[in-house]
Amino acid sequence: MSIAESSFHYVADLVRRETSMLYEQGKEYLVEARLLPLAREAGDSDVDVYVSRLMTDAAERRKAIDALTINETSWFRDNAPYQAFTDVLLPQAIAARQATRKISIWSAACSSGQEAYSLSMLLDQHLPLGWTAEILATDVSTAMLGRVKAGRYSQVEMNRGLPATHLVRYFTRVGSEWEVSADLRRIVTTQHLNLATTFPPLPTFDIVFLRNVLIYFDLDTKRDILRRVHARVAPGGSLLLGSSETTLDLTDSWEREAVGRVQVHRPVPAAGAFGLTAPTRAAV
C-alpha cells in the first residue's frame, strides 16, 4: 500500500504553501510514514482517506503540517558544531560582550529543542560566573514549541547522543519521560517563527544555529532567509549551518571561516556601516 499520487501532491502543496518546505517526488514514503500514525489515530483506514479528511478539517491540517515539518533530532547532533561552540564561538562572544556580560543565542527551526538544550548545557559548563545567557528557540510548529517549553523527552529520545553524565546532571525522571532541569529551561525561551516569511521583531544574536533546515526550501527562499538572518547576527557574531548547507552565492554578505571541522559564517557589514557599532537590542 502506498500513497496515491493525488494525495501526495495535495500534501506537498499544502506544506509548501504553509511553510515553504519542499516535499519533492520520491519523498512519498516520508509523507506516508509521517501521516500514517495520524491516520490511524483519526480512525482512517489508510493515508489517502486521511488526506481527504485534511481537505475539510483545518485542525487536522495543522496536525499534519506539524508532523511533516518535524526534523529528526538528537542531542549534540554531529558533535563538531558544539565543539566549535565551546572552543571558539563562545569565547569570542564572551570577549565581545565584556560590557553587558550577556550572551544571546538563536536556535532557529528548533524542532523539539534538543539543540537549544544542548547549547544550554554547554553554557552551564562554560559561561563565566556572573554572566547571563539567553537562547531563543523558534519553530514554525506550535506543537514543537510546546514540547520545548515542557522540556520533556521520551526514553528513546534521551538515548540519542546525550552523554550519560549530562543525563544524570541535568534531567530527572517524570513518569515515562525525562525532564530537563528548571535552570536550563530558564535560559531557553520560545517564539513562533516561520523562516520563510518576514521575521517578527528580533534582537541581534551573538551566535545563530540554523542547521539542517535550509535543505527543505527552494533556492530563492534559501537566499531570502539568509538575507534576513544576516541582519540578526551581531557584528563579529557567527552563523552555523548544517554540514551540507552553505551561504550559497551570497559571498558579499557572508564570509566563511573554518573552525575545527565546521564552517562558521560571519556577516560582512553592509558598505558604509563598517566599523564596530554596538548592536541594537530589541526586546524579546
Binding site: 538528537s74 542531542w75 526514553q155 528513546v156 534521551m158 538515548n159 540519542r160 547522543g161 552523554p163 550519560a164
Partner: peptide, 14 residues
C-alpha cells in the same frame, strides 16, 4: 556510557 533499553540503532551509533 549508558544506553537505556529500548533503543534504536542510531542511539548506539551516536
Amino acid at each position: 556510557e549508558y544506553v537505556i533499553k529500548p533503543f534504536t540503532p542510531d542511539a548506539i551509533v551516536d
